[in-house]
């Protein structure tokens, strides 16, 4: 319907209807990280199987929420599965840059401390979520699972055996 095609792109609805990597991992040994959006009640649980070198061997997603939060989580899981820690963190930075550059424009604080985009990172399907920035209250839906992933990677790094 008019005005909404930027938000509800077909690929987003596809990930919402058929979420990838849906489920749980035994934790421990996997890491279990919860993310909440206290304003709307959305929640996402990210299960991470992180190798000793920090790469994401496996990832599962559970939780509940709107099409944007759930499809973003699904796309995130597909994008980072099998990636090294550095590649996953670069994806997080690139995705949040896509969201937050616009957030900063909305705040009118564009000049101050702009987040560097990641020109070398290919977001691929994730670019479908770019339309979310036109609906500012939904940005936090899109970033919920990414913030949760970042927290999980931080915890994994803190727990990792020192080489």
């Amino acid at each position: 319907m008019p005005g909404l095609e930027d938000l509800y792109r077909e690929i987003i609805l596809d990930h919402y209807r058929n979420p990838r990597n849906r489920g749980e991992l035994d934790a421990p040994p996997a890491l279990r990280v919860e993310g909440f959006n206290p304003l709307c009640g959305d929640e996402v649980v990210v299960y991470l199987d992180v190798a000793d070198d920090g790469s994401v061997n496996d990832i599962k997603i559970s939780g509940q929420g709107c099409s944007i939060s759930q499809s973003s989580a699904s796309m995130m899981s597909s994008a980072v599965k099998g990636k090294s820690a550095e590649e996953a963190r670069a994806l997080i930075r690139a995705f949040k840059a896509m969201m937050s550059i616009h957030e900063q424009r909305l705040d009118g604080s564009e000049e101050e401390d702009p987040i560097q985009a990641e020109p070398d990172v290919k977001l691929g399907d994730l670019e479908a979520l770019q339309g979310v920035v036109k609906f500012p209250v939904r940005i936090k839906c899109a970033t919920l699972s990414w913030n949760t992933l970042a927290q999980g990677l931080d915890e994994a790094a803190a727990d990792a055996p020192t080489a």
């Binding site: 319907m1 909404l4 099409s67």
Partner: peptide, 12 residues
């Protein structure tokens, strides 16, 4: 249809 999505579509 999640309530947030519903509210967003209704707003249109």
């Amino acid at each position: 249809v999640h309530p947030h999505d519903l509210s967003q579509v209704l707003d249109q």
